[in-house]
């Protein structure tokens, strides 16, 4: 039986881990290799590295960070943030990413997902989808770190992405990101009813209880940043609580 995955996320800028609230107000949260190594030792099942840098020079720095983290840890690494071309995706895979997450560029040109999947396989292609709740059962896809509203229905976009060759969906609630108010559970329920590929829940975790709720609402994996970076809890502690709640985990 597949276990539920706990995935710490490193937002990286200029070779440092940073963290913000609703994608803004970034503060320093340490060295990426040290963080990644600690999380892997605690039992992290995967790691996500999101490049939140603003310039082309920083993007090269991110590939270097990926390469350093790759050498240090032996669990899968997904890298995303600002990936706009196949060439850029391949450069990240070359640097040591196992999967690449596409966001804004895929919304603007959905065939990018298919082209990447044809080249490297669906297991390497992750759709990073940022969804903003618009009332009722409608979530709108937002891009450019939340600055652009697209009018797209998040559920429809995810279903289309699945057809194009996406292997997994990294589903971030824009409303909850960094707020520690818990994951958007209705979004997770609606999404897991709509697509058959694994869903990584992101945005809003403050406690193992939030993670259990998300996993019981259709998420296959849960992603968190703040609670691990602030040393409020460890991956090992979270896994103990998940196991106690009867969820299958990798010990």
């Amino acid at each position: 039986m597949l276990t539920r995955r706990i995935i710490p996320c490193l937002d990286v800028r200029d070779g440092r881990v940073v963290k913000g609230v609703r994608f803004a107000g970034l503060r320093d949260a340490g060295d990426p290799v040290a963080r990644a190594t600690a999380y892997a030792e605690q039992g992290a099942d995967e790691l996500v590295i999101l490049d939140v840098s603003a310039t082309a020079e920083d993007r090269d720095a991110c590939a270097r960070t990926v390469s350093l983290v790759r050498k240090a840890i032996a669990v899968p690494i997904t890298v995303g943030g600002g990936v706009r071309t196949i060439e850029h995706a391949l450069r990240l895979l070359e640097a040591g990413a196992d999967k690449v997450a596409l966001n804004t560029a895929a919304v603007e040109r959905p065939d990018l997902l298919r082209e990447l999947a044809d080249l490297v396989g669906t297991q390497c292609v992750v759709l990073a989808l940022d969804a903003a709740r618009q009332g009722g059962a409608f979530w709108e896809v937002v891009t450019r770190s939340g600055r652009s509203r697209t009018g797209l229905d998040a559920l429809e976009w995810a279903a289309q992405a699945q057809t194009l060759g996406t292997g997994e969906i990294l589903l971030t609630s824009w409303d909850r990101d960094g707020t520690r108010e818990g994951y958007d559970l209705p979004l997770l329920r609606a999404m897991s009813a709509r697509v058959g590929i694994p869903i990584i829940a992101s945005g809003g975790a403050d406690s193992p209880a939030h993670m259990i709720e998300a996993l019981e609402s259709g998420a296959d994996a849960v992603l968190a940043a703040s609670i691990f970076h602030d040393n409020d809890t460890t991956v090992a502690d979270v896994k103990r609580e998940l196991a106690a709640a009867g969820l299958e985990i990798r010990p």
């Binding site: 297991q123 292997g167 296959d220």
Partner: peptide, 10 residues
């Protein structure tokens, strides 16, 4: 069953 099988299994 979830296909692809993505993740950790015993």
């Amino acid at each position: 069953v979830r296909t692809p099988q993505f993740g950790w299994n015993r």
